[in-house]
Structure formats: structure tokens, C-alpha cells
Amino acid sequence: MAVISYREALRAAMRDELNRDKNVVIMGEEVAQFNGAYKVTEGLLKEFGPKRIVDTPISEAGFIGLGIGASMLGIRPVMELMFWSFSYVAFDQIVNNAGNIRYMSGGLINCPIVIRGPANGGTNVGATHSHTPEAILASHPGIKVVCPATPYDAKGLLKAAIRDNDPVYVMENTILYNDKGEVPDEDYIVPIGVADVKRIGTDLTIVAHGRAVITSLKAAEILEKDHGVSVEVVDLRSIRPLDEETILKSVRKTHRALLVEENKPFCGVDAQVAYLIQSKAFDELDAPVHRVSSIDAPQIYCKRMEDLQMPSVERVVAEALKVLA
């Protein structure tokens, strides 16, 4: 097993699938000649040529809509958004067209498109470039949303997404692109909709996704070392479908839950998870469910404040102690 970065893992997934299926096409702004705004697609143009790796104009509604149309005829486009924040100019295509076509046609049409790119705050770029739309998009039946936190999951989930016959939106994180981890060379996928227990514990369940998983794992170490608490960390990996069983199983074991996400709190992913726990594991709870999310404001530019706006290790530790009190 090789140790590679999250960025390299994503690239490996695309390379594998480009080799496996001639209908896979990579498309987006700067993905080809420029080698990718974040170098995720570096080298792919050289390896696969301009028919498979396609630079687009700055025209998100146009090229994503084009990808959706092409996918209806069997092409498997993997579209890169420079930021998921830019999906908002293509919202009609992403939601109305990709999300509804199968339903409105009574199941006659499939839309096997993947849209991927970073969806994260914490990079000091202000409100317009820091959106995390996983909850917004996952609230639309017809759409799948995944948020890998590690290189292993990034490769496995992206490969699963490309093979999937429904629209799958992969939300990455620029802050994780350089994170390294063990990733098998051989073919594997991470099935969409299966959460992963990233740390086993007995006293408290933390449910998180995306970079909040990494934050939560660090918090769990401190809670263990300084407070003698054994924390289990459940990484959702997939927002829709949602692995309800893994969440519930953990909560039934620890009887306490803290939900951590980098979204703003209102109607965040964890609002749904909190509802799930109270409706299906109410009697198992020894304390109310708590949440840690970003402070409810547009993303602030000032780096010192942005770091405080988002869930930090300190905030997770403090909130965990409240659940345990």
C-alpha cells in the first residue's frame, strides 16, 4: 500500500476510471493545459489527450448542463468545479436538470454525472468562495452527495461515484489536498452510503464529515489524554445516502452524541442527524445531543476570526465535555 496525498488519490481514481471506461471524460475550468487549479488533474491531459480531458470556458451553467445532457446519452462526465461555491450559477442545471430528469421521465433517463471540487471554508478567501453546499444539495431527492475526509476515502468514493448511474456530487476540501494516507494500488471502491468508524470509543460518539472528521479525531485524542474519556468518531463519508445504522449503533453503545460539521448550523447536515438520533435512539440517550458548527454568519475574511468561526479542536473538546457533564 502506497502513502499518497488526498490530491493524488483523487487523481488516481480518475486515472483508473479513464482507463476502465472510454466514456469517462474529465471536464472543467483549467483541468487540462493548466493541469488543474489545484493540480488534482495534473498530467491527465498528457496521458489521455484532449478528447478525454477537456478545458472549458468559465461557464458553469453551460458546461455542467452540457455534461448532464451528454450523460443522458451514456457519457460519464466528471466535472471539476474550481469551488463548489461556483455551483450556484449552475444551480438550475445541478438541481432541476440532473436531479429531476430520472423522476420526471418515469425512470426512462439516467444521469450518471459526477461533479467534484472543493467545498470548504478556512482558506481566508471570504464569503463568496467558502460555501459548503452539501446540506443544500442533499436535501434534493435524486442527488447523491459524498464528502471524503481521507485519501483512502477520496479515491474509493470518487471511483464509486464515477461508476454510479445517478448524479453524485463529490465535495472535497482544499485544506486536505496535501494530507497523506495509505491507499491501495489495486482496484477498490468505497460504497456510497457507508459510514466509517474512524476511532473506536465507549463514552461519547462524535459524528462528523469532511475535514470536521480530522478535527474531531484530534479532539478525541485530547479528550482521552487530558480527560480520560473514550471517544468514538463516526465519519459519515456520504451525506445522501446516509448510513443511519452506523450512527445509531454507535450512539446505542456510548449513549451520548456530539455532531460536528463545518456548515452553518441552520438546516445543516447535523440537523438531520440530530433528528435521526432523537427519533430512533431517544431512550438510549443519557444526555441531549449537542452540535458544533461554524458560527452562523457569512464566512469572514479575517483569518484569525475565520479560524474561530469554524469548528476548532478546542471548541469540539469544550462541547464534548458539556455532553459528558
Partner: peptide, 20 residues
């Protein structure tokens, strides 16, 4: 019905799990 291909075609070929 007809929301997800995977949901309508559950079998060895489907790759996703969980509540959808």
C-alpha cells in the same frame, strides 16, 4: 420510485447502501 437508479435496481451491481 424512479428517484435513483440504484434504488430501483438493487442487486449485486449497485454500489451504494444506506438510507436514501
Amino acid at each position: 420510485k424512479h428517484i435513483y437508479w440504484e434504488e430501483d435496481n438493487r442487486g449485486p451491481k449497485t454500489t451504494s447502501r444506506g438510507t436514501i
